[in-house]
C-alpha cells in the first residue's frame, strides 16, 4: 500500500459518501444518472468475486464490502425509494449503457491476463469502470446546470483514478516486475474521459461561477 493508492481509495470513498449525502439530505436524485450507478454496482460485483476466496487484508475486504454495499444502496434508493425515485430524470438519462456492458465483456473475453472466470470478470470490471461515467457526463451536459454535490461527486470520482495512475507509476518504479497494463491503459482512458469535465469544473471554480457544461 502506498500513499497514492490510499489517497485514491479514500477519494473514491468520499465520492460515494458525497452522493449518498446528496440523496439523503435532499431526498432527491436529480442530476444523477441511474445508469452510471448501475454500471458501478456491476463493476464492483464483477471485480470482487474473490471477496471470499482471496484474503488480502482487513482493509481490502472492508473496502470491498463498503463499495458493493454503497453502490447497491444508491441503485436501490434511485429505483425503489418512493420519494427519491420521483426526482429521477428518466427522460434525460437515456444513454444506452447496455452497449457499454456488452462491449466491455467482449473486450474482456479477448484481452485478459488469464482465461479464467475470475480474471475475465476482473478485466470486464476494469474496462466497464473506464466508461461507466459516460451516462453521467451525458446527463450533466443535457441538464445544463450542475448542482454542487453532483459536481463534487464527479470531481472526486475523477480524482480517485488520477491518484491510482500515480500509484501505478510509483509501483512500477518501486516493485520489480509490476506489470498491470490492463489497469494502466483502462485507467488512463477513464481519467481522460474526465479531462474536459475537470476543465469546466476548474474554470467555474476559478471564475466562481456556476458550473455550466456546453450542451
Amino acid at each position: 500500500m502506498n500513499i497514492f493508492r490510499l489517497a485514491g481509495d479514500l477519494t473514491h470513498l468520499i465520492s460515494i459518501l458525497v452522493l449518498l449525502l446528496k440523496i439523503y439530505a435532499t431526498k432527491s436524485c436529480s442530476g444523477i444518472s441511474l445508469k452510471t450507478q448501475e454500471l458501478y454496482a456491476l463493476v464492483f460485483l464483477a471485480r470482487y468475486l474473490d471477496l471470499f476466496t482471496d484474503f488480502v487484508s482487513v482493509y481490502n475486504t472492508v473496502m470491498k464490502l463498503v463499495f458493493i454495499g454503497s453502490s447497491l444502496a444508491i441503485v436501490w434508493c434511485m429505483r425503489m425509494h418512493r420519494i427519491v425515485k420521483r426526482s429521477y430524470n428518466r427522460e434525460l438519462d437515456t444513454f444506452r449503457h447496455y452497449f457499454l456492458v456488452a462491449g466491455s465483456f467482449v473486450l474482456a473475453l479477448v484481452v485478459h491476463e488469464k482465461f479464467t472466470l475470475q480474471e475475465i470478470f476482473w478485466a470486464f470490471s476494469i474496462y466497464l469502470e473506464a466508461v461507466a461515467i459516460l451516462p453521467q457526463l451525458v446527463l450533466l451536459q443535457r441538464s445544463g446546470n450542475v448542482d454542487n454535490l453532483t459536481g463534487q461527486y464527479v470531481f472526486f470520482l475523477g480524482a480517485y483514478r488520477a491518484f491510482y495512475i500515480l500509484n501505478w507509476i510509483y509501483r512500477y518504479f518501486t516493485e520489480q516486475r509490476f506489470g498491470r497494463w490492463i489497469s494502466w491503459i483502462s485507467g488512463l482512458v477513464q481519467t481522460a474521459l474526465y479531462a474536459d469535465f475537470f476543465y469546466y469544473y476548474f474554470m467555474s471554480w476559478k471564475n466562481n461561477a456556476k458550473l455550466q457544461l456546453p450542451a
Binding site: H12, N60, Y164, E175, R180
Partner: peptide, 10 residues
C-alpha cells in the same frame, strides 16, 4: 508480468 497471483488493488 503480474507480480502476484491475485489483485491486491480495489
Amino acid at each position: 508480468l503480474v507480480n502476484e497471483k491475485y489483485h491486491d488493488e480495489l
